[in-house]
Design a binder for these strands. Structure first.
Lengths: 141, 141
DNA sequence: ATCTTTGCAAACTTTTTGCACCAAT
DNA sequence: ATTGGTGCAAAAAGTTTGCAAAGAT
């Protein structure tokens, strides 16, 4: 279907990975999601196509996809991680009061990345953690 | 002993909180630590003075101290949180390869904080999550 | 004497792992 | 026919909670 899906699957095959129904569906959901998904949300969606799919399989699949550089995960809050395609780079603002998540341009962090590199020798993956704060509506509360 | 310790304990008392040996020791360790401590590190240190102290007590104490604005916690990596005095604000750079943690000036994030506010209406607690990346030594690996 | 705080054990949440079975190549 | 992937169930890892007993005020 989607060109992007097929390209990713071909990548996987090229690396010697096997394409199972669960894996194909995970990739389709990630491509279709435009945004981030938790492991839980992923199993749920995958179940519509592969009823028996297990959460452990999702985690193992994400592991493979991350190792191949196809996806990345980000920690939005206390605990749960979210996954998204690696070429869809963005930073996350999370409201600690209402839980709202806003995806913002990675440029927001460009300055920090530069300074971390110049002043501390650190190459950041700045978007690996969300930026926590209070959104417009909650900031008064 | 330390002025800072006594000031914090007085604050607690003023809020109707009781000062137990465990709590006094937690505060002393936090003040003495100059930097961040995990709950685990805290129990361990508290044990030298209050042998029976339980991890659950540490968590409950941190809860109280956070509610009163005395401490804050930060997520350095996958899982563990670290605690430090709220008036000791700093950002954290964590090397995802070797685990090294560097404390840096909160100014590093000042620009991001301003832009998040101006462009997205978000008031950040930017130091609540660590900035993940690779340190000088690990960045080649 | 009162009402909090503690210790303990158990629940919880998210992620990982060991193992026998099944399926993609 | 081979491997590698899967489901399941159990283990981690970090934090939270219910409860009765101990302790601060």
């Amino acid at each position: 279907m989607s060109d992007r899906v097929e390209r990713i699957l071909a990548d996987l095959r090229r690396q010697g990975e096997r394409i199972t129904p669960a894996r194909r569906t995970v990739v389709e959901e990630l491509v279709g999601a435009d945004g981030h998904l938790t492991a839980d949300e992923l199993v749920e969606r995958v179940h519509e196509t592969v009823p028996g799919a297990h959460l452990a399989t999702i985690y193992r699949t994400m592991d493979v996809l991350e190792r191949l550089g196809v996806v990345e995960h980000t920690h939005l809050g206390h605990g749960r991680a979210v996954y998204h395609l690696a070429d869809d780079v963005h930073a996350h603002l999370v409201c600690e009061s209402c839980g709202a998540v806003v995806q913002v341009s990675p440029k927001l962090l460009a300055g920090v990345e530069r300074r971390a590199r110049e002043e501390h020798g650190f190459v950041l993956r700045a978007h690996h953690f969300a930026l926590v704060g209070r959104c417009r509506r909650c900031k008064s509360a």
